[in-house]
Write a protein that binds this DNA or RNA. Structure first.
Lengths: 200, 200
DNA sequence: CGCTTGAGAATACGACCGTATCCCAAAAAG
DNA sequence: CTTTTTGGGATACGGTCGTATTCTCAAGCG
């Protein structure tokens, strides 16, 4: 038997290079050749791990989704709901260089997903997970109004996700509006998740 | 003198073809050749009106921005604030085929703007106009809390814009979530712009 | 009418794309 | 050591890209 390597680890390294490139220069600059260069490999080596470019992009999209879920799970569950929610959104917002890269990659894949069924399916699955986790978490914290608190928490979760995505989008092309947009986030969270829990 | 045509009208027609193509197939499928075909022209004819592809995209981005402002100005000013705001957001959301095209083009340009200074500048200018109009409108309607109602209205406007953009993004790759996302919009607007005005 | 000038089409060129194929080095099994 | 199998590099091919250049044709003015 010849030498063998950890194929999954190699795929992850190449996928990371895809995300790095997509975040720094946009998804348009992602080609098999540029990815290979970014990963310190030859174009042929990349082809050994991904038979087609689409397969490579799908893998990278899954990787990006996994990173989001990781970050969501990493927020301190001991924080008060309002602060925890704010921290949660902040971990996904491009407020510094590191998060900017992550958010830019997410946006690039989301945009392409609008015209690419495969990427769309991956995105929808990740979104469903995040949405459910967020809604359950809001329900536990006692938010959710009206006759159906469960349904209201789902609507609330969708609103928070949309708010976060919209803020991320604008931060990416208008980083100078950072302070104003963070104020807007605070203001919106105050309105959506009032500090005083209705039924303590 | 030889025959002459309305150059600006020609540019607008080609720009419209760019937006149509970007909305239906994504900005990646926009090339000088495909745009020419979509506009019923030869590639050479397109070159007469836009010396470079970047110039063409910038023009299309301006056109898309102008369409947004047109739609904003077209909402009935006689509606109650809450309903008017909802109608305003709904005109930008991809809830049907026509609006889907517009929203997809907007998203495509916004995404590219994250890595393209020229498109970013156009986007920021359009955003500033929309933001200011929305904030002034909220202030007139009596919303805006705290010691500085003007600043609060700006934050509110930013939040509504972000919410709208985030909903549009998700609607584009998850059209089946339409009902849930419209409920989330209603819920968020209820919280952000309470029906009962604090200081009548 | 003939000339000039702009509209528009056709073509050319170099670069990069995704993918398929072939070749070589190295390491485990015999 | 030889054989065999796999990782990885190199190369080739058809296609599309953006752009520059050149051509044809018709319309208006002297």
């Amino acid at each position: 038997m010849p030498k063998t390597v950890d194929r999954e680890e190699q795929r992850r390294q190449i996928g990371a290079a895809v995300l790095r490139l997509a975040s720094e220069q946009g998804l348009d600059e992602v080609s098999v050749r540029t990815v290979a260069a970014a990963a310190g490999r030859s174009p042929g080596a990349v082809q050994k791990y991904f038979r087609t470019k689409d397969e490579m992009l799908a893998f990278a999209a899954e990787l990006a989704g996994a990173r989001i879920e990781e970050r969501m799970a990493a927020v301190d569950p001991g924080l008060p709901p309002r602060e925890a929610l704010c921290a949660l959104v902040l971990t996904t917002l491009p407020v510094d260089a590191e998060r900017r890269a992550e958010a830019a990659a997410q946006l690039a894949f989301a945009t392409r997903a609008a015209h690419h069924p495969g990427l769309g399916a991956i995105r929808r699955r990740v979104d469903a997970d995040v949405r459910e986790a967020l809604a359950g978490w809001l329900a536990d914290a006692g938010h959710g109004r009206g006759p159906e608190p469960g349904a209201d928490c789902l609507a609330l979760a969708d609103a928070v996700i949309a708010l976060s995505d919209g803020l991320a989008l604008r931060l990416l092309y208008a980083p100078d509006d950072r302070e104003a947009l963070l104020r807007a986030l605070d203001r919106a969270l105050d309105a959506l998740v009032p500090p005083a829990v209705p039924h303590p």
